[in-house]
Amino acid sequence: MTVILVIDDDPGTCQLLTDALQHQGYSVQTAGDGLAGLRTFEAVHPDFVVLDADMPLLDGHAVLRTVRDRDGDPVPVLMLTAATPLNGAARAWPDGVDYCLTKPFTPDEVTKLVNSLVGAWWAENEQ
């Protein structure tokens, strides 16, 4: 089963994404800040990360850079940002994000992106 790690400091967003992703058949783990997110990433070894850009203790951009610096296959990352699409993406692309989604978003938008990115990642890495 594909494991998705949701890292977001808003409990409501974590619950919304957990419900939507579990409904799609994914196993979901959550973390409420960047430091907890990195600890969970190391413990769980998720197949996909949904990451909030603006969080306390360690922001999403620092988490993304740390995840990208890890050895092994890169894990697809979807970053959620309240910044304008251009500004949010401009900060995240150099760090290796796979996709940025601007808040507010719908659960359907997230699940469609996750399904698409997970499918593309698996197809690329199974060759």
Rank of each mutant, 00 (worst) to 15 (best):
M1G: 14
M1H: 11
T2Q: 07
V3T: 15
V3D: 15
V6S: 09
V6Q: 04
D8Y: 06
D10C: 08
D10V: 13
P11Q: 09
T13N: 07
C14F: 02
Q15G: 01
L17E: 12
T18S: 14
L21Y: 09
H23M: 11
Y26G: 01
S27A: 13
V28A: 05
V28I: 04
Q29T: 01
T30Y: 03
D33M: 03
D33S: 04
L35F: 01
L35I: 14
L38C: 00
L38P: 03
F41H: 09
E42T: 08
E42K: 11
V44P: 06
H45Y: 01
P46E: 10
P46G: 08
P46L: 10
P46N: 09
D47M: 05
F48M: 15
V49G: 04
V50C: 13
V50G: 06
V50R: 02
L51R: 06
L51P: 08
L51T: 01
A53F: 12
D54Q: 15
P56W: 06
D59R: 11
D59Q: 10
G60K: 12
H61Q: 11
A62V: 07
V63E: 07
V63S: 08
V63F: 05
T66E: 15
T66G: 02
V67A: 04
D69W: 00
D69E: 14
R70W: 10
D71C: 04
G72A: 08
D73M: 11
D73P: 11
P74Q: 12
V75T: 14
V75L: 02
L78A: 05
L78Q: 05
A82Q: 11
A83E: 13
T84R: 06
T84C: 00
T84D: 14
P85H: 09
P85K: 06
L86Y: 00
N87Y: 06
N87D: 15
G88S: 02
A89T: 15
A90S: 12
A90K: 08
R91G: 15
R91V: 13
A92K: 00
A92V: 03
A92N: 03
P94H: 09
D95H: 10
V97H: 00
D98L: 01
C100F: 03
T102Y: 01
K103V: 05
K103D: 01
P104I: 04
F105L: 10
P107R: 02
P107E: 00
D108M: 08
D108V: 06
E109F: 00
E109T: 12
V110D: 06
T111K: 05
T111A: 02
K112D: 15
K112L: 12
N115I: 03
V118D: 00
G119I: 00
G119A: 14
W121K: 08
E124V: 08
N125G: 13
N125E: 11
N125M: 12
E126K: 10
E126V: 09
Q127D: 15
Q127S: 14
